[in-house]
Computed example of a mutant assay.
Amino acid sequence: MFFRKKKIEFSEEDFESVVRACLAGSEQAQRALFKQYFGYAKSICLRHCSSPEEAEEVLNEGFFKVFQHLDRYDPSQPFKAWLRTILINTAISHYRKNVKYTRDTVGLEDATYPKFDDNIIEKITADEILELVQQLKPIYRTVFILYVVDGYNHREIADLLDINEATVRSHYVRARARLQHLIKRSYPDLFPTDWGVQSYRQNEN
C-alpha cells in the first residue's frame, strides 16, 4: 500500500500562492516562478558576465539559491529586489572563484583614454552597449555595472569585492574610459572628424 503525494495547488496569477507552493516543495511552482522571472534575471546575469554561457551558469546557480533560501524572503518587500541581490552576489562569488583580483592602488590619473560627450551613449541601443560592456576586463565590468546600473556606491562596492575604495574608484574610471574607447572604435560615425585632435589637446592640458 502506498500514499499518493498530495498535489499542491497554486495559481500563476497569484504570486503569493506560487511562493507558498514553492516552499511546500512543488517543482511545478518552482518552474512557474523561474519562468516568470527568467527574463529579468537573465538581463542581470548578462550584465555581470563575459558570455551568455557564463551568464547561464550564474543564472542557474542564483535560482538554486533562491529556492534554497526562499523561506528567508520577506513578502512585504519586492521580490525582484530580493532576487536581484541574490543574483548580484552569485555573480560576484562566481567572479571570485574564477578570476584573480588585481589588488592595486593605481591613481585616477593613469586612465589616459580621451574623453567625449556622454550624449553619444544615448545614440546607441542598450544591447549594443551591453555587448561593449562585456568586452571590459572582468573587474572593470563588475565595478562599472555595480556603480552605474545597480546603484552601489564606491564604499559598498569595495566591501562587496573585498578591495579598498581607492582601487574601486580607479577601476571605475578605467572601465568608463575603456568603454568610451570601445564606442569610438565601434561607432566612429558618431564622432566629429577632429575628435582625435581635440582629445589629444585635452589630455595635454
Rank of each mutant, 00 (worst) to 15 (best):
M1C: 14
F2V: 14
K6Q: 03
K6W: 06
E9P: 00
E13I: 10
E13A: 15
E16N: 12
S17E: 08
A21N: 07
L23I: 14
L23E: 13
E27M: 04
A29N: 03
L33W: 14
Y37V: 10
Y37T: 04
G39D: 06
G39Q: 13
A41Q: 04
C45M: 04
H48I: 07
S51F: 01
A55D: 04
E56F: 03
E56L: 05
E57W: 00
E57M: 07
N60W: 04
E61I: 05
E61H: 03
F64I: 11
V66A: 09
F67T: 11
Q68S: 10
H69C: 07
L70F: 05
R72A: 09
Y73N: 04
Q77V: 03
P78I: 07
L83D: 01
N89R: 10
I92M: 11
H94Q: 04
Y95W: 15
Y95S: 15
R96T: 07
N98Q: 13
N98S: 11
Y101T: 07
D104S: 06
V106F: 14
A111G: 14
D117M: 02
N119C: 05
I120L: 14
I121S: 12
E122W: 03
E122P: 00
K123P: 00
I124L: 15
I124S: 00
D127V: 02
D127E: 08
E128Q: 13
L130M: 02
E131L: 14
L132Y: 06
L132T: 02
V133Y: 02
V133H: 08
Q135K: 14
P138D: 12
Y140V: 01
R141F: 02
T142C: 08
F144A: 04
F144T: 01
I145G: 00
Y147F: 10
V148A: 08
V149E: 13
G151P: 01
G151F: 06
N153T: 10
L160Q: 07
I163W: 13
A166S: 13
R169S: 14
S170Q: 01
H171G: 09
H171T: 01
Y172G: 05
R176K: 02
R176E: 09
Q180Y: 15
R185W: 01
Y187F: 15
Y187A: 07
D189S: 15
L190V: 03
L190Y: 15
F191G: 05
V197K: 13
V197S: 11
Y200A: 12
Q202T: 11
N203V: 11
E204P: 01
N205V: 07
N205S: 06
